[in-house]
Structure formats: structure tokens, C-alpha cells
């Protein structure tokens, strides 16, 4: 548990770690249905009610509880962000390792395809993919994963290229170690640190991209709840019911801040060049 201790010893890691921990707890509660009210229940009499003791963050146009919907929304956004980053990290690692290991033609082919994907702005590429496949939760997971795969490929390929020429890899070859053993024990194990940092930062982008897609109506579909969708619903009622805008907006902002702070802290902790400064 050294890493957790190190995160909480780091000034921005402490804040980021707390925020992310809190969000994960909220997401679990939201997904498990442990919310103040049923997020889909419409309390007709209390439509557009300002925050009070019963409705902590007020109610929306249909009289649904904003706090409950926010919890479910965070859960939904986290599922999409985690699933898409997990896919992107896996695909990126496999492609990056393949490019570094096989080199030559494979390296050229894989990296040029990644360059093409990177040439598009993230949200535009995601829009394009959804426009082709059609909107939905799993489409946005796929779209976000494809958008972030090139970043992981690059993060893996660079260090893998240099690890491949290290003496301990040569030593492994002299023992006759299998390719699988060298790739997993000698390359992957040394890539854990840069990948962890990248995953944390990618989660922040994933969260934002998901919110963007849902805001545009291409992500999570109503009546399910998601942070982007809640923002989108609030935009005509900004003046009469500002709480509809403020809470989901803050939730997105603080969440991204949390992941970024945690990512920065992990980068400091796991990078041997700055490790001494932290300890």
C-alpha cells in the first residue's frame, strides 16, 4: 500500500485522491440505486423546486430529484469513462508493443494509422464514429476508446523501444526466454508507471468527452441520466432554475480536476527523476 501512502503525502495527490475516492463512492451508490429518491420518479407537485432539505439539489422540469440523478449520472459517466479508457489502454498497449517489438514495416504501418487518428480533434472523431454507428452508451464507449488509443500507443511504443535494447532483455534472450515472458516481465512491468499516469489523465478526458457527447445528444440517451445530458436539459432553464446547470457543471469540473491532480501526483511519484523530491 506504499503507493496510497505516497499519494496522500503529495500535496496535489491528497486533494486529487480524495476527490476521485469520493466520486467512485458516489458512482457506486448511484449505480447500486442507493440515492435519496428514485432518479426517474416524477414528483409533479414539486417541479422546478429550489434546493431544500428534501431535494438537496432541487428538482428538474419533470419534478425529478437532481441530487439522485446526479449520483446516477456520475455513475453512468464513470462507467463510460472507465470502460473506454480500459479499452483504449489495452488496445494502445498491444499496438504500441507490437510496433516497438516487430519494428520496421509493422512499426511504420501502426504508427501512421495512429497519426491519422491523432490528426482529428478528439470530439470530432468521436462524432464521426457515432454518426456512422448511431448513438448509445456502448457506441460512445467505443468512440472514446478509439479516440484515445493512439495516445496510449505512443506512450507505450517510446519506452518499449528503449527497453527492448536494454541489457536485461539481451540477457533474457541468452537464457532462451520466450517472447511472451520478455514482453510481459521485462517490457510491460517497466511500463506500468507511465501507463498508470496516462490512464489517470485519460480518465479526465474520457469524463469530459462523454459529457460533451451526451450534451450533443449522441451519448447516453434519456430518460437515463448522465452529466452531459443534465447540462443539456438545463440550458433553456438557466435563469429560472440555475441549480439545474450549476450542480452537474460543478460535478464535471471537480471530477476532472480530481483526476488531473491525481495524475500529476502519480507522475511525480512514479517518475524516478522526481521521486527524491517527493520523499
Amino acid at each position: 500500500m506504499g503507493i496510497v501512502k505516497a499519494i496522500f503525502a503529495h500535496p496535489s495527490g491528497r486533494i486529487g485522491g480524495t476527490i476521485v475516492g469520493l466520486y467512485i463512492l458516489i458512482a457506486f451508490l448511484g449505480m447500486a440505486g442507493i440515492t435519496p429518491h428514485d432518479p426517474l420518479m416524477q414528483f409533479r407537485v414539486d417541479r422546478l423546486h429550489a434546493p431544500n432539505a428534501a431535494y438537496w439539489m432541487g428538482t428538474d422540469l419533470f419534478g425529478r430529484d437532481v441530487a439522485s440523478r446526479l449520483m446516477v449520472g456520475i455513475g453512468q459517466s464513470f462507467v463510460v469513462a472507465f470502460a473506454s479508457v480500459a479499452l483504449a489502454a489495452t488496445a494502445g498497449t498491444v499496438l504500441g508493443l507490437a510496433a516497438a517489438w516487430f519494428g520496421k514495416g509493422w512499426d511504420g504501418l501502426i504508427m501512421r494509422v495512429m497519426d491519422v487518428l491523432l490528426a482529428f480533434p478528439a470530439i470530432l472523431l468521436a462524432l464521426l464514429i457515432i454518426a456512422v454507428v448511431g448513438p448509445g452508451t456502448w457506441t460512445s464507449v467505443m468512440a472514446i476508446a478509439i479516440v484515445y488509443t493512439p495516445i496510449f500507443t505512443r506512450v507505450v511504443r517510446g519506452p518499449a523501444l528503449s527497453l527492448k535494447t536494454r541489457d536485461f532483455v539481451d540477457a533474457a534472450r541468452t537464457f532462451g526466454s520466450s517472447r511472451h515472458y520478455i514482453l510481459t516481465r521485462h517490457l510491460m512491468l517497466n511500463l506500468v508507471a507511465p501507463l498508470t499516469v496516462q490512464v489517470t489523465l485519460a480518465l479526465a478526458w474520457g469524463l469530459l468527452t462523454e459529457a460533451g457527447l451526451s450534451f450533443l445528444g449522441l451519448g447516453t440517451q434519456p430518460p437515463a441520466s448522465s452529466l452531459g445530458l443534465m447540462l443539456s436539459d438545463s440550458r433553456n432553464l438557466m435563469e429560472t432554475a440555475p441549480w439545474l446547470l450549476v450542480f452537474p457543471g460543478l460535478a464535471i469540473m471537480i471530477g476532472i480536476l480530481g483526476f488531473n491532480l491525481l495524475g500529476d501526483a502519480l507522475r511525480d511519484i512514479l517518475d524516478p527523476k522526481t521521486r527524491r523530491a517527493v520523499a
Binding site: 536485461f168 537464457f175 520466450s178 516481465r185 517497466n190
Partner: peptide, 18 residues
């Protein structure tokens, strides 16, 4: 020539596993 992320017992075991 030693993988910094492996414990010494894993390092010594590598030729055997290989």
C-alpha cells in the same frame, strides 16, 4: 542488465523458467 521491477528471486528464476 537486471530488470529494476523484478525481485531478485524472480530474476534468478528467469533462466529456469526459460
Amino acid at each position: 542488465s537486471l530488470n529494476p521491477r523484478l525481485r531478485v528471486d524472480s530474476i534468478l528464476a528467469e533462466p529456469v523458467v526459460a
